[in-house]
């Protein structure tokens, strides 16, 4: 078994004329909690899409569980939570239970029904995100933060080894962001799920993550969270300019 769940070697990607990612080398150890930070347009979402096989790299290599991307078939091992707030059709008439059950689509296989057969798995995923009181509510009736928990439940119901989250707290109100990250930490520590998180909330997650990758079309920093603390101010101000001050302020208010 490979120690690294995901490896990128010399990966380049461009949309039309714009070079979005150049020479990315990144390896994600099993059981880690990696935060990918970087400004808008830095290629964070593109990198996730490459890992998920939604985009194909121009050159370089993406390996998942030691296998080249094109040969990798066990997608149920990878859970994905997208940046939902803007895309989600909140009027969709589906219950929490139905949405979480849909996370088993691939695992169950073609022509198989999931909703009765996997009742225990579905309920325990809903419990893991602490939403057991809302099982038969329509997803549209929930708040943004609650919806995002349901999408996590949908991603973990197939018992993935890796969970990939693309700015999951967009549209979640500030007071619930902290509890949201507490829940992620539980998934990482208690269930041993490797987490890959794209985020702007560097302050709020800093005490939970184990690794950091700073991306701005190239990889500026990649290493452990402890090492990142040393270079943090320098790295972040290079990306965000003055905004880095705001992040610090938010953080201190949040903690005290």
């Amino acid at each position: 078994m490979d120690r690294h769940v995901i490896e990128l070697k010399g990966v380049n990607y461009r949309y039309d004329k714009e070079q979005v990612l150049s020479d990315i080398n990144l390896s994600i150890p099993k059981g880690s909690f990696l935060a990918i930070v970087g400004p808008n347009g830095s290629g964070k979402s593109t990198m996730l899409k490459l890992i998920l096989g939604l985009l194909k790299p121009r050159d370089g290599e993406v390996k998942i569980f030691g296998q080249p991307l094109l040969k990798f078939k066990e997608w149920e091992k990878i859970g994905y939570v997208s940046q939902k707030a803007n895309a989600f059709n909140s009027g969709f008439p589906a219950t929490v239970y139905e949405v979480v059950a849909s996370g088993l689509t691939k695992k169950a296989g073609l022509f198989k029904r999931v909703e009765r057969k996997y009742k225990d798995e579905i309920m325990s995923a809903i419990k893991a995100v602490d939403m057991q009181d809302f099982v038969y509510r329509n997803i549209g009736e929930l708040s943004g933060g609650q919806q995002q928990r349901i999408f996590i439940a949908r991603a973990i119901v197939s018992r993935p080894e890796v969970l990939i989250l693309d700015e999951p707290t967009v549209g979640v109100d500030a007071k619930n962001v902290q509890t949201f990250y507490d829940m992620l930490e539980r998934l990482n520590v208690e269930l041993g799920i490797t987490l890959v998180l794209v985020t702007h909330d560097t302050g709020t997650v800093s005490n939970k993550i184990t690794h950091v990758a700073c991306l701005n079309n190239t990889l500026h920093f990649h290493g452990s969270a402890a090492d990142f603390e040393q270079v943090k101010d320098h790295e972040l101000s290079a990306f965000y300019g003055h905004d880095v001050q705001t992040i610090h302020h938010d953080h201190s208010h949040g903690v005290h």
Binding site: L52, G53, L54, K73, W75, E76, I78, Y80, S82, A87, F88, N89, F92, A94, E98, V99, A101, S102, G103, L104, T105, K106, A108, L110, F111, K112, R113, V114, R154, S158
Partner: peptide, 22 residues
């Protein structure tokens, strides 16, 4: 009836469907 869960996923969240290999 045979493709119910796939059609549900396609309707509810096409991107997630793609990401899970549909």
């Amino acid at each position: 009836s045979l493709l119910y869960k796939e059609l549900f996923l396609l309707s509810f969240d096409e991107e997630f469907g793609k990401a899970s290999g549909l």
